[in-house]
Design a protein around this nucleic acid. Structure first.
Lengths: 112, 112
DNA sequence: TTATTATATAGATATTGGTCTATATGTCAA
DNA sequence: TTGACATATAGACCAATATCTATATAATAA
C-alpha cells in the first residue's frame, strides 16, 4: 500500500514525470492539457504511460468527466513519502522536533 | 551548488546507493566496512562508484585517516533536498505551517 | 450504426546507468 | 625502495526503462 523509498525515488527520477507532476499540482488537468503543457516534446502515449505509473503508485487523483480524464497530484501522498525519506535519511535533523502550529487567527476560529 | 529535484531523485533511485546511505547514516564507515555491510553482493569498485556519486552531490561527508577513508551521510543536505521536494510537490500540505520548537530544557541551556 | 474525440495499451527500439574486471593511485611499514 | 593494503578510475557489458508508432478501448454525437 505505502511506497518504499526506492519506489518513490524511482518514480521521481524522470524529468518528464516531474514536469507532469508539477503541471497537475494544485489543479486538475486533462491528459490533453498535460500533453500540451509539455510543448509538443512528448507524445500522448508517453504521457499516458507516465500517468499510469503515477496512478498505480497512488500519487495522482483521477476523475472522469465525459470523454476526458482529469488528473491532480496527490499532495498528501507526496508529503507522506517525503516524510518517510526524511525519517530514513535525516533522522537526526530538526524536523523531528518540529511541531504544527496554530496561528492566532485560527485559534480564534476553532474556538467558535 | 544546490541539487535539483531531478538530480536528488536520480541519486536516490538506486537500491545499492540507498543501502549505502542507510549504512553510513548517523556514523562514520570506511569503504571496506561499507563493502562488508552489503554482504558480499557488491564489489568494492561498485561501492566506490556509488560513493563518488554521493560525494559529488555533497550528500556524504568525507574524512581520511591513514590509508582509510571514512564516509558519513550528510543529513543536513538530505534534509534540505527533502524540503525542496516537499515545497515543489506538496506546497499545500501542512508542514509549511510547522515551526521548529525549543523545549523548556533547551531554552534554559541557550540562556546560559 | 458510424464518425469523432479522448485516452490507454502493445510492442519495438534506443539510451541510460549499474555492475563487473583490470588497473591506477595513494598511504604506510619494513 | 619495495611490498601490502585501501580506495579510486577506466572501460566493457548488460538490463532497465523512456520513448515512439500503431492500434485498441471508451464516450458521445449525428
Amino acid at each position: 500500500m505505502t511506497l518504499t523509498t526506492i519506489e518513490f525515488a524511482r518514480i521521481l527520477a524522470d524529468e518528464t514525470r516531474q514536469r507532469l507532476m508539477k503541471n497537475c499540482c494544485c489543479c486538475w488537468k486533462s491528459v490533453n492539457e498535460l500533453v500540451d503543457d509539455l510543448g509538443g516534446q512528448i507524445s500522448q502515449p508517453t504521457v499516458s504511460h507516465h500517468l499510469a505509473v503515477l496512478r498505480q503508485a497512488n500519487l495522482v487523483l483521477v476523475r472522469r468527466e465525459g470523454k476526458q480524464i482529469f488528473y491532480s497530484l496527490n499532495q498528501e501522498r507526496i508529503a507522506s513519502c517525503c516524510g518517510q525519506l526524511f525519517a530514513v535519511f535525516a533522522p537526526e535533523q530538526q524536523p523531528q522536533r518540529w511541531v504544527p502550529v496554530q496561528f492566532p487567527s485560527e485559534v480564534e476560529k476553532s474556538n467558535r
